[in-house]
Write a protein that binds this DNA or RNA. Structure first.
Length: 478
RNA sequence: GCGGGUGUUGCUUAAUGGUAAAGCUCCAGCCUUCCAAGCUGGUUACGCGGGUUCGAUUCCCGCCACCCGCUCCA
C-alpha cells in the first residue's frame, strides 16, 4: 500500500480488473452480489497461496497429511456440528424506524434473555428499539447462512442437502479412515483446502466477505491436556507463515479472544489480523476446540471416534487445534500490500530507481518523472515469476534466441512471453502484474551469450550468462 | 436489510430527445540497440428491463451491481 490508509479499494479493484486478477462474477449479466471470479493473474496468485500453505503445512511436515472431501455431505453432519441449529442468527427489525438487530444482543443489552422455543425464538416482553424506542418489532427470524440444495430428482425435506459452510467437518468425519490408513500417531494433523459457502446477509469490502470462498484448514489432533502448548505452537507457526509470503509483521496482529467470548467447548482462540485499507480484519482463526467435534460426530453417527495410545494404553477422544485460513482474504491482503504507486525518472536512465519516489496521491507528478504502478509481490506468490523479451521484435535472431530461453525457463516457473511494444512498455506491464524479474535478449546475447535481468523493485539490470540464468532464478525466486 | 451516492469502450473524460467524441490502454503493421518513443490502421461502450415518444444513452418507473454510512461479522 502506498501509505497507511491511502489505498482506496476501488483503485485496487480497477487494477485487478484491468490486469486480470479479479473480475465481478457473471459480469455480462449484471453481476451477482457476493461472488467473484479470478482472472489469469488472480488464479495464479491463489494457486501460489494454496501451494505455499500446502508445502509448509502438509508436505514439509512428518505429522500432517492432506485430504480432499466433497462439498456436499450427509445432512446429519451439519446437525452434529451445530450448523443447522446454531449457524443462524435470529434477527428482529424495528417496524417503525427499519433498523435491524440481532435478537440475542438486543435482549442482552436490555437485561433480558431471548426465549428459545421448539420452532424458533420469541422476544420477551418489553424489548424496545434502541434507536427510536418503538416496541413495534418483528418476531425474531433466523437467517440460516447455509446454502441448501437437493439430491436426486425429488425436491423435498428428505432430499435436502447443504453446501458446506466450512471444510473442517470433512476432516472430522473422515478422522477414522485417515487414522486407519495414514500410519500417523497423535499428535498429528489432517489438512484440507477447498471451497466453502455461506449465504452472507451483507457481503462487503470487495472480496473480503463473499458468499463462496476458499478455506485452508488444518485439524491438528492432540492428547487432551496439551491444548495450551499446541495452540501456542500453531499461532506462532501460522504468524511466521504470513511473513514468508511477504506480509510485513508491522501489518499483522494477533487478536486473542477473551475467555468469555469463546464457544463453550473452546479453550482458546486467536485470530491473525491484517491491516486492510478498510480496517484491521481477520485472515485466519486458530482455535483450540477441545474434543467437541469428534464427540458430536460420534454421538450423532453412533460410531466411536477414539484414539488408542499404544505406549500408554490409554483410549481417548483427541482434542484438536484448528488453524483455519481464508485463501481469498489472503489474496486480498497480498494485493493490498503489494500495490504501490511511484514516480520514476523519465526516459533513459541507467541509475534505475535510485530516483524513484513514492507517489503522493492528489499531487502532480514532478518534472521529468512519470507514474509507475507496481505490485511488489513476494516471489513466492507472484503470479508470473519471469518475463522474457527479445529487445526488438523485427530481428528474428533475437526473437528465436529469446524464445529458446523462455521455453527453458517455463519448464520450472510461471513465465510470460512478450514481444509487443517498446522494451520500457513491456517492463511496465510486468510491473503491474508484479513479475519479479524480466529477462531481455539483446545483441550481446547473440555474441556473448549473456542476458540482462531486470529487477522489478529496484528497476536495476544486471548482465549474466545464459548458462547461469536457471540457477540465479532458482536462488532469487525462493 | 436501511439510508445516501454512482453506473457512457479496459481506463479517464465529453456530447446529445435524432449517425455517441477524444486521450491513454489494447491489437495489427512499419520502425525502434533497455524503462509507458514515433507513424499508419483497427477492435471495443450508453448496467438490465419496462414506460412515455415517430424516435430514449438522455425523461419516468422498476431491477441489478458497485461505493460510503448504519447493521452484521457466523
Amino acid at each position: 500500500m502506498t501509505e497507511a490508509g491511502t489505498l482506496k479499494l476501488d483503485v485496487l479493484a480497477a487494477l485487478c480488473k484491468r490486469r486480470g486478477f479479479i473480475f465481478p462474477n457473471s459480469e455480462i449479466y449484471g453481476g451477482i452480489n457476493g461472488f467473484w471470479d479470478y482472472g489469469p493473474l488472480g488464479s495464479e496468485l491463489k494457486r501460489n497461496i494454496r501451494e505455499a500453505w500446502w508445502q509448509d503445512v502438509v508436505r514439509r511436515r512428518d505429522d500432517v497429511v492432506g485430504i480432499d472431501t466433497a462439498i456436499i455431505m450427509h445432512p446429519k453432519v451439519w446437525e452434529a456440528s451445530g450448523h443447522v441449529a446454531g449457524f443462524a442468527d435470529p434477527m428482529v427489525d424495528c417496524k417503525s424506524c427499519k433498523k435491524r438487530y440481532r435478537a440475542d444482543n438486543l435482549c442482552e443489552d436490555q437485561g433480558q434473555e431471548l426465549v428459545r422455543t421448539d420452532t424458533g425464538f420469541v422476544l420477551p416482553a418489553g424489548i424496545s428499539c434502541p434507536a427510536c424506542g418503538s416496541k413495534d418489532l418483528t418476531e425474531p427470524r433466523a437467517f440460516n447462512l447455509m446454502f441448501e440444495s437437493n439430491t436426486g430428482p425429488v425436491k423435498d425435506d428428505s432430499s435436502r442437502v447443504y453446501l458446506r459452510p466450512e471444510t473442517a467437518q470433512g476432516i472430522f468425519v473422515q478422522f477414522d479412515n485417515v487414522l486407519a490408513t495414514a500410519r500417523q500417531k497423535i499428535p498429528f494433523g489432517i489438512a484440507q483446502v477447498g471451497k466453502a459457502f455461506r449465504n452472507e446477509i451483507n457481503p462487503r469490502n470487495y472480496t473480503f466477505r463473499s458468499r463462496e470462498f476458499e478455506q485452508m484448514e488444518l485439524e491438528f489432533f492432540i492428547k487432551p491436556g496439551t491444548d495450551t502448548e499446541w495452540h501456542k505452537y500453531w499461532v506462532e507457526e501460522r504468524l511466521k507463515w504470513y511473513t514468508s509470503i511477504g506480509l510485513p509483521s508491522s501489518s499483522l496482529h494477533l487478536d486473542v479472544h477473551p475467555k468469555e467470548k469463546l464457544a463453550h467447548y473452546a479453550s482458546a482462540c486467536t485470530d491473525v489480523m491484517y491491516d486492510f485499507p478498510f480496517g484491521r480484519q481477520e485472515l485466519e482463526g486458530i482455535a483450540a476446540r477441545g474434543c467437541f467435534d469428534l464427540t458430536q460426530h460420534a454421538k450423532f453417527s453412533g460410531k466411536p471416534l477414539n484414539y488408542f495410545d499404544q505406549e500408554t494404553n490409554e483410549n481417548f477422544v483427541p482434542h484438536v487445534i484448528e488453524p483455519s485460513a481464508g485463501v481469498d482474504r489472503i489474496a486480498l491482503a497480498l494485493l493490498c500490500n503489494a500495490y504501490r504507486e511511484e514516480w520514476v525518472p523519465k526516459g533513459k536512465d541507467d541509475s534505475g530507481s535510485a530516483g524513484a519516489i513514492l507517489a503522493e496521491p492528489g499531487k502532480p507528478v514532478p518534472e521529468a518523472h512519470e507514474p509507475r504502478t507496481v505490485m511488489r509481490f513476494h516471489p513466492r506468490v507472484a503470479p508470473v515469476k519471469v518475463a522474457v523479451f527479445p529487445l526488438l521484435k523485427n530481428k528474428p535472431e533475437l526473437v528465436a534466441k529469446a524464445r529458446g530461453i523462455f521455453e527453458d525457463l517455463r519448464t520450472d516457473w510461471s513465465c510470460f512471453w512478450d514481444v509487443t511494444g517498446a522494451i520500457g512498455r513491456r517492463y511496465r506491464r510486468q510491473d503491474e502484474a508484479g513479475t519479479p524479474y524480466c529477462v531481455t535478449v539483446d545483441f550481446d546475447t547473440l555474441s556473448a551469450d549473456t542476458v540482462t535481468v531486470r529487477d522489478r523493485d529496484s528497476m536495476k539490470q544486471e548482465r549474466i550468462a545464459v548458462s547461469e540464468l536457471h540457477d540465479l532464478m532458482r536462488e532469487r525466486l525462493r
